[in-house]
């Protein structure tokens, strides 16, 4: 995909991230500069969760989504719960991952190689804001993993 078009889609899908949204959800943006969208979810009940979306070639390809500790290091144990946060280790990255058709990691997982991103691209809930909302809503139902 033309990088300029990819950047345009990235900006269109993130320009609704208003101060009001960030305050309501206790999100802090660490970086919002194409192709990276890096933010941290905060909640008084649990450890912060940092999410980094790498949107190279978006949206011909889905975003690669990294689960991070607050300091930016890879999360080795994901919080436990339901929804898109998979605490199991991904066969390629060997890290917990986002098990959703909106993530690159889903499509390179051996269980989903036949489920094309084309089935989801442009569908409601699979844009960048939709993916972050899914992850956030899943995270709110988790408990922290024990170290």
């Amino acid at each position: 995909m033309n990088p300029s078009l990819s950047k345009l889609i990235f900006e269109r899908e993130t320009n609704g991230f208003t101060t009001r949204l960030l305050e309501l959800r206790s999100w802090i943006i660490n970086e919002k500069s194409f192709p990276n969208l890096d933010l941290t979810f905060h909640s008084p009940e649990r450890k912060p969760l940092r999410i980094k979306l790498i949107c190279e070639n978006y949206n011909d390809d889905p975003a690669s989504i990294q689960l991070l500790n607050e300091d930016g290091t890879f999360l080795l144990k994901a919080p436990i719960g339901q929804g898109v946060i998979n605490p199991g280790l991904h066969p390629v990255t060997n890290l917990p991952f986002i098990c959703s058709p909106g993530s690159k990691e889903y499509h390179i997982h051996s269980s989903h190689l036949n489920d094309s991103w084309e089935n989801y691209k442009g569908q409601p809930g699979y844009d960048l804001g939709g993916m972050l909302s899914q992850i956030y809503n899943a995270w709110k139902k988790t408990v922290d993993a024990q170290n």
């Binding site: 309501l24 898109v84 959703s100 058709p101 889903y106 989903h112 956030y136 809503n137 899943a138």
Partner: peptide, 14 residues
């Protein structure tokens, strides 16, 4: 009140 409106937590795929 502020209503937080967005996609459910989802999970998995086909």
């Amino acid at each position: 009140i502020s209503i937080d409106y967005g996609p459910r937590e989802g999970g998995g795929g086909k």
